[in-house]
Design a protein around this nucleic acid. Structure first.
Length: 789
RNA sequence: GCUCGGGUGGUGGAAUUGGUAGACACGUUGGACUUAAAAUCCAAUGGCCAUUGUGGCCGUGCGGGUUCAAGUCCCGCUCCGAGUACCA
């Protein structure tokens, strides 16, 4: 009896579906286990053999835990909002929902074929209004919250208002905007409603701000920092420039320390933890205030952040970022023109240019001086683009003897380089070795080491009110607005004062409107600006036609949509109770399932999805909605399965192709050919090649031993390299069990490894032998029953 | 530049705590079966040397070290990959 994998797999897959074998029980007395694979974006290309690697590993573990007696939750869904469907819509006019649905169906067919034990009754799709209703709901919760630094927890905004009414804001420790004014209780009460709302926005965990954002002109949208790679957009590689825009922001910085500390409590790969740690970028130092020297009664002060307060006596100048707010104010009349020219020139340079040429030193003197806190000596204030507006305070105290960048700047502009280190020569290069620092020429710090000097100088600064110890983070608040169509609409309208108002949770979901064009409007508004029905009627709580806007009861709705990571930041919890229309999830359900026990997915989400999800989880934990403040106990990053491209060699400038072994006798160029035409000995049948693409039709082939042999190169699996292997074809030829077994057999899960279809005969042969071993006994009483593995 | 991984046959990769390096598989070679091929089965397969004694020598990127014993631990170097990048 032969191993008829086609029928075996078809039969059991049908049986599993009929019996709902993989449906998670709820409620249940059994212990739970939650195994989760990252849900995919359903792209038009379908799955290749690399995609299911993580799913297969997770599936095997889920099955194992079922056999151990656990009640296993193993769901799957789709992260179905996203740019490709929208761009396809822009080109063809086809609604992204239609493309997305077609792609999902294709994915589902492919996934089904692999025999994965998903509980499909719990499927979620981020673009489904019944789902994104709850994404909008989380947004409302964030808007309704502020971060209490004293309690180190988010709290309802109503508590904050009550405190403002009682005591003003002077004593409130909160994560808030830097420009928040101080006010008393009576001042608070005297504020207009609009003023009060503007102040509250400075505290809310999601807020509107005029932010310098990464604007990508080619995509017509802003991008978050993690969506930019090497100064160009991650998708498409388009240039990105800085631009000021009013955007919804997420106050993730309030959680910086907890996002860092939480890493110690979870079993995640060290490289991933490291990249989150670097991304958050905690540095311990001090803030120091320098007074600007002025003939007038000036109160201008420059605050800097430094990790080397011990080197304070080595300061010989200060540098401000060109975008620093004080630049205009302090620049002297003589220097105005030079400064204006420089600021204009740097503003024009894109982030990419600025990064591409880190080596060029540029800057300009403002003509102003600051006063050294201790020596009272005047310190010239410069502007330089090596200082970033976005980090710290956008200003540095320059210590050329202790910091190489300051040293370079000083050398370039002939500024003094005073030495404050014992026994070190700093004329040629800065000395930055903290461990071997002994301070000299520094008044009361002489003879101290790094640690002693830092403590002492901070203590002295505190006495004078000119500084204090400070922890600074590289992490920025996340921009949450996108100028796109195919995303979650914000449940927000703008009242007569132009202030944002939330649509009550009862009236969600706020569904995406229909538009006839998916591009930004001619006036530069986001695509939702094309909708004719995009106004909110506060009496009927419904979306109505824009022409009804009267700013009395009918108001304009927000035109931006949420970014891709909105929908993926809580989906893992929604699987626990996916059809609940009363709540995001029933408390009893999340009490039972708690958290993800095993999460498998790619490491490319380290500073995106996986960081934002941890942030939302901590927030929902603070507000008592989830029982754990980390959503996934253990995480594994599966490696990438790379393709093995087939390379044909063509004699340059001709139509002659030469077999691999003979290539060195000619001047050849490499051309990729379809790997699916190549056999296990790297031979390609010439007729197949001639039929494959027209340019081979007339080609001449120089053979070795009557064969045409191709070269091999390992690279990313991609349609354009013709090295994509389709899992459907493998299932057809060898069966899902062979595919699954082979993928597990290729090498360690975490490692990246090349796919080679020829190798699959090994495990396929094993399954055949196993089958033969068992079949003679099939049908006898007590005989083993073989099922798909 | 910094941080983190990694380097083992022709190939993918094994080797749990320092204890027979190269499991398993691919590929290759030879053989069986067959008119032939495919499929299947059997055998060999790190390198070099020896071979009517079935044995010897070398070998885990390179150079040192610790140890009775090192792929594994330590020091230095080198190459490859990933992340990050003027972070004060």
């Amino acid at each position: 009896m032969t191993y008829d994998f086609q029928n075996i797999e078809r039969k059991w897959q049908a049986e599993w579906a009929k019996r709902e074998t993989f449906k998670a029980d709820y409620p249940s007395e059994k212990p739970k286990f939650y195994a989760l694979s990252m849900f995919p974006y359903p792209s038009g290309a379908g799955l290749h053999v690399g995609h299911p690697l993580g799913y297969i590993a997770c599936d095997i573990y889920a099955r194992f835990k079922r056999h151990q007696g656990y009640n296993v939750l193993h769901p799957m869904g789709y992260d179905s909002f996203g740019l490709p469907a929208e761009q396809y819509a822009i080109q063809t006019g086809q609604h992204p929902a239609i493309t997305t649905a077609a792609n999902i169906n294709r994915y589902r067919e492919q996934l089904d074929r692999l025999g994965l034990s998903f509980d499909w009754s719990r499927e979620v799709r981020t673009s489904d209004p019944a789902y994104y209703r709850w994404t909008q709901w989380v947004f409302l919760q964030l808007f309704d919250s502020w971060y209490d630094n004293a309690k180190d927890s988010a709290a309802p905004i109503s508590d904050l208002i009550a405190r403002f009414e009682r005591e003003g804001n002077a004593d409130i420790q909160a994560a808030c905007d830097a420009d928040t004014p101080i006010f008393s209780a009576s001042e608070w009460k005297d504020f207009t409603k609009k003023e009060q709302q503007a102040i509250l926005l400075k505290y809310r965990l999601t807020y509107l701000a005029d932010a310098e954002v990464n604007w990508c002109p080619a995509l017509g949208t802003v991008l978050a920092n993690d969506e930019i790679v090497n100064g160009v957009s991650e998708r498409g590689g388009h240039p990105v420039v800085r631009k000021k825009m009013t955007q919804w922001m997420m106050r993730i910085t309030a959680y910086a320390q907890r996002l860092l500390s939480g890493l110690d409590t979870i079993d995640w790969p060290q490289p991933l933890k490291d990249s989150q740690t670097n991304w958050i970028g905690r540095s311990v130092g001090a803030s120091v205030t320098f007074k600007v020297i002025s003939k007038e009664e000036s109160t201008a002060q420059i605050e800097v952040f430094t990790t080397r307060a011990d080197t304070l006596f080595g300061v010989s100048f200060m540098t401000l970022a060109p975008e620093h707010v004080l630049v205009d104010q302090i620049t002297t009349p003589e220097q105005k023109e030079a400064v204006a020219t420089y600021v204009a020139a740097t503003a024009k340079r894109s982030e990419r240019d600025r990064m591409a040429d880190v080596k060029t030193i540029s800057g300009v003197f403002t003509g102003a001086y600051a006063e050294h806190p201790f020596t009272k000596a005047p310190i010239p204030i410069w502007i330089g683009d090596y200082v970033l507006a976005g980090y710290g305070t956008g200003a540095v105290m320059a210590v050329p003897c202790g910091d190489q960048r300051d040293h370079d700047f000083a050398s370039h502009f002939n500024l003094p380089i005073p030495n404050i280190f014992e026994g070190v020569d700093t004329t040629a290069a800065a000395f930055a070795d903290k461990a071997n620092t002994v301070i000299a020429n520094s008044d009361f710090l002489n003879g101290l080491n790094y640690k002693e000097a830092t403590q002492k100088v901070i203590a002295e600064l505190e006495k004078m009110g000119q500084g204090q110890g400070k922890v600074n983070y590289r992490l920025r608040d996340a921009v949450f607005s996108r100028q796109r169509y195919w995303g979650e609409p914000f449940p927000v309208y703008y009242d007569a004062d132009g202030m944002p108002q939330m649509i009550a949770a009862d009236h969600l979901p706020l569904k995406l409107p229909e538009v006839d064009k998916y591009l930004p409007t001619e006036t530069g508004e986001p695509p939702l600006g094309n909708a004719t029905h995009w106004a909110w009627d506060t009496t009927t709580h419904k979306v109505v036609a824009n022409e009804k806007i009267d700013h009395q009861t009918v108001f304009p709705l927000e035109l931006n949509t949420m970014p891709g990571w909105a929908g993926s930041s809580q989906y893992f919890n929604r699987y626990m109770d996916p059809h609940n229309n009363e709540a995001i999830y029933a408390p009893a359900a999340i009490d039972y399932w708690q958290e993800v026990d095993l999460y498998i997915g790619g490491s490319e989400h380290a500073t995106g999805h996986l960081l934002y999800s941890r942030f939302w989880q901590k927030f929902l934990f603070d507000r008592g909605i989830v029982p754990k403040d980390e959503f996934a106990k253990k995480l594994i990053n599966q490696g990438m399965i790379t393709g093995t491209s087939a390379i044909a060699h063509r004699i340059s400038g001709t139509k002659k192709y030469v077999s691999f072994g003979l290539r060195e006798s000619y001047d050849v160029e490499k051309l990729r050919v379809d790997v699916n035409l190549v056999d296990s000995a790297d031979e390609v049948a010439i007729d197949d090649l001639r039929n494959w693409q027209p340019e081979y039709k007339e080609a001449e082939f120089i053979l070795e031993d009557g064969k045409f042999i191709v070269g091999r190169e390992v690279e990313k699996m991609s349609k354009r390299w013709f090295n994509v292997v389709n899992p459907d074809q493998i299932c057809e030829d060898y069966g899902a069990d062979s595919l699954r077994l082979y993928e597990m057999f290729l090498g360690p899960l975490e490692q990246s490894k090349p796919w080679n279809t020829a190798g699959i005969t090994g495990v396929h042969g094993f399954l055949k032998k196993l089958w033969k071993l068992f079949t003679p006994f099939m049908g006898q009483v007590g005989s083993p029953r073989l099922r798909s593995v």
